[in-house]
Amino acid sequence: MSSTLLDPAVAAELPDVLPARKQRGKVAMFAYRHPSIFAGGLLVSLVVASALFAPWLGTADPTALAPAKRLRSPSEIYWFGTDMLGRDIYSRVLYGTRVSLQVGVMVALFASVIGMFIGLTSGFIRVLDTVVMRVMDGLMSIPGILLAIALMALTRGSVGNVIIAITITEIPRVARLVRGVVLSLREQPYVEAAVAAGTRVPKIIWKHILPNTLAPITVQATFICASAMITEATLSFIGAGTPPTIPSWGNIMAEGRALWQVKPFIVLFPAIFLSITVLSINLLGDGLRDALDPRMAKKI
């Protein structure tokens, strides 16, 4: 810009008062503007990659027993050591990532979709609102983990049932959020203008309400994903979740619990993975919230 304003001859003689502006690439610029989305996103993609490529990352069969080689400390051959049945903990932890991600993503997806449906319905049909929201209050008054344990007690232990149980405990949070957003959006002048312009209710919901609830739902979904992973690990740890034949972080920790004082690495590695994954997803969610809704970020 400056060259168009100044005569080039004069410009050449002017001393450089300002330092040259730092040139940043697109990626660097994004990282600078949204550090938590960048950091969270990077870590999440690492975790996802390790789950996807688990078979090619130097792992052995995570369920193969080798009693002769049990309780080995971390070494060149067994990076994270072996458990009391001689299974390679490194392989088990990587394969466990699959279970955790599966549960986290599926719960976030199902809870968001069902919660959104319930929230939209009770936000729009006021007669249903009182009944539906009291049911949601009831669900929320039971601690999530207890409700999940109770639901698991009714069924067989499997990843699918774990997903269903945790989804049911997470639905009320989404429903409440969506209902609140719907109630405030309904009063927006653009919705009133749409009514005046003859728009029918289904189209108002689809065109004017739904698109404006997606940002808060996306943010909420990331937090639900993280919380579902912790719940899954807790359920597995107390033996009410993923069946012990499937390696999951909760199962590995449950098996290593008895040996915690002598062989701490059995519990340590899945715990580190769980913490980092949950942290990175929460970072991503925080960043998304700041980027999508600056007003909300200031309040919390």
Partner: peptide
């Protein structure tokens, strides 16, 4: 309000 009377996503 010319800001809230138009749907920001349309």
């Amino acid at each position: 309000d010319p800001f809230s009377s138009l749907n920001p996503r349309q």
